[in-house]
Nucleic acid binder design. Structure first.
Length: 553
RNA sequence: GCGCCAGUAGCUCAGUUGGAUAGAGCAACGGACUUCUAAUCCGUAGGCCGAGGGUUCGAAUCCUUCCUGGCGUGCCA
């Protein structure tokens, strides 16, 4: 709809240039069309005349008049007006809008999906929590946002890969193995001193017990081998937990990428060599450094420490180079906001190796503050009230959980109230949206009971939809595809959540004011078509974001 | 000190990437179930968009200087 109008405006502008009524020959890269907040200003509005004021050296309103004259007689609009400082406001013919309903009924579960990203490969790497413990609430937000970003991109036609990077190398893995081993020795009756920097949590004891019952005791191996065995066992078990949690959230990854594998394949050394050959790295104080300050970082960064071990940055360099080798046009990393200091060095590394820094987009996920009944819920790792993601999902349910995580822009902090999220009341926006869907389904059941036949394309008389609320609903439905595209291109899935709430509100209001099933069959059919279009859009949006669209509530 | 993010109604937040009179949900107050599900709707009230300066036809949005909160600033992960 919008695109058609945009084309018409472009054509009009071109005509003005050829007939000489406008002279600058200036063509904006894109004709800006917006939906005015105030519906009296029409369906769409453009500021074109104002942007042309400077090159044309004429008053905006004069230019607008010229453009409007050229636009007369096109088949889309029934009213074109000049307003304010030079806006051109368009009101489309109602029958134009009603075509959207045909489109929705016809496309059904594919309505809202597009091909704007066709041919582009994007990778979204998210969660990537260390396999040293269960996922917590903060991981949950990153998981849902990452998954939703991926889903929205897919809906816009991009080829998307979801990837989980497993940090299964390095110090914390040693600590994990050591911690399990010590607990295992305890179970074997030894008295051990548990170090401060070990993992204290109870699940380590569980892992030790499981090791003991499945693998037996560890007596005839060296310390190093024992730690190694425990680490590997722990990683596998914990990854099983993580995968199960994510699965209960409806999230699955296309690819699990092991850091250790990067080392085993020699890729880290290979990439470090490349950096050296390009003269980007240097040795100092017995360590190997990357000169990231050449590309805007405020400090150079260590790749290999003076004791010969690698930093995480070293494997991250190799990992990201490997991502681009796989042919992605865009790589998205979803990180906790506390890692933001890492971005400059990553971008510097990419620039040094000849990749445009924009090819990596880092989405920072701000903190989640847990609340219960309005009171902050303090989580100490030491204290007993540490709450895992699994417990949250079990308590509030998958749909509510996902909805709450998507309700905010990801770079603003999120207050998550456990009581509110599980409340099945009007305070809870999840049910508000789902209820709208269930209501349409209920109308359909009633329609079927009273013998109304299923809708046939072509037998619907849209002129029966003459109420202003009905036209407004149709316009809202027409906005869904562009909302999805906008959410995809800006990596902002929360836009769809707000769209859903707006649509549900409009529907509930309409439902309360007017009956769908009325005496007149033609009106009934037209209204059934309208509310079912609402149902389809609600279902598509919910489904896209991994939530259910219940038929009854 | 430096860097990143945020600051919009009493609370939690949107604001279509610079557009017209700044919006929604809670909370408050007053109404609507004999009618397709009241997990709903209708109405009232609520604002110096943190503060100052700048850019222009036009700023919550862009540039700048401050103020407040969070996070970061390791040869930690």
């Amino acid at each position: 709809m919008k695109d058609q109008l945009r084309l018409a405006i472009r054509a009009a502008l071109k005509q003005c240039y050829t007939d000489g009524s406008l002279t600058s020959g200036e063509f904006p890269k894109e004709v800006q069309l917006e939906i005015p907040k105030n519906s009296e200003h029409g369906d769409f509005s453009t500021n074109l005349a104002m942007t042309l004021a400077k090159p044309e050296r004429k008053a905006p309103r004069k230019i607008a008049e010229t453009l409007v004259a050229a636009l007369q007689g096109n088949s889309l609009c029934d009213k074109i007006e000049i307003a304010g400082p030079g806006f051109i406001n368009f009101r489309l013919i109602a029958t134009c809008w009603y075509k959207v309903l045909d489109q929705i009924m016809q496309q059904d579960e594919t309505y809202g999906y597009s091909q704007v990203g066709a041919g582009k490969k994007i990778q979204v790497e998210f969660v990537s929590a260390n396999p040293t413990g269960p996922l917590h609430i903060g991981h949950g937000r990153g998981a849902v946002v990452g998954d939703a970003v991926a889903a929205v991109l897919q809906a816009a036609g991009f080829e998307v890969q979801r990837e989980y990077y497993i940090n299964d190398a390095g110090n914390q893995i040693l600590t994990l193995g050591r911690s399990i081993l010590l607990r295992l020795r305890e179970l074997q009756g030894e008295i051990v001193e548990f170090p401060e920097d070990g993992y204290q949590a109870a699940y380590i004891v569980d892992l030790a017990a499981k090791y003991r019952s499945e693998q037996g005791e560890l007596n005839d191996v060296t310390e190093a081998e024992a730690i190694e065995l425990c680490s590997r066992f722990g990683i596998v078990e914990i990854l099983k937990w993580i995968e199960a949690d994510l699965k209960s959230f409806g999230i699955h990854f296309d690819h699990w990428f092991s850091e250790q594998n990067l080392y085993d394949q020699g890729m880290v050394d290979q990439e470090l060599l490349k950096l050296k050959e390009k003269g980007l790295s240097f040795e100092e104080d017995g360590a190997l450094w990357l000169r990231t300050t050449d590309y805007g970082d405020d400090k150079d960064r260590v790749l290999i420490k003076s004791d010969g071990s690698y930093t995480y940055f070293a494997s991250d360099v190799a990992y990201h180079m490997e991502k681009f080798d796989r042919g992605f046009d865009q790589v998205i990393d979803v990180w906790g906001a506390d890692h933001h200091g890492y971005i400059p060095r990553m971008k510097a590394m990419l620039a040094g190796l000849g990749h445009p820094p924009e090819a990596l987009e880092v989405l920072l996920i701000q903190m989640v503050n847990l609340h219960r009944d309005g009171q902050p819920y303090i989580m100490g790792k030491r204290s007993g009230n540490f709450i895992t993601l699994k417990e949250v999902i079990d308590e509030v349910g998958r749909d509510a959980c996902r909805f709450f995580f998507l309700m905010r822009r990801c770079d603003s902090q999120l207050d998550f109230d456990l009581e509110l999220a599980k409340q099945q009341s009007s305070d809870n926006p999840v049910y508000y949206v789902q209820y709208a869907h269930a209501r349409v389904c209920s109308i359909n059941r009633n329609a079927a009971e009273s013998g109304i036949e299923p809708l046939q394309p072509g037998q619907i008389d849209y002129n029966r939809l003459e109420l202003t609320e009905e036209l407004a609903l149709v316009k809202q439905l027409a906005r869904f595809p562009e909302t999805v595209v906008g959410a995809a291109l800006s990596y902002e899935p929360h836009r769809i959540i707000f769209y859903l709430q707006d649509l549900a509100a409009q529907f509930h209001s309409y439902y309360n004011r007017h009956r769908v099933l009325v005496d007149d069959p033609a009106t009934t059919r037209a209204r059934l078509c309208l509310v079912n279009s609402v149902r389809i859009v609600l279902a598509n949006a919910l489904q896209m974001l991994g939530m259910s669209a219940p038929e009854r509530m």
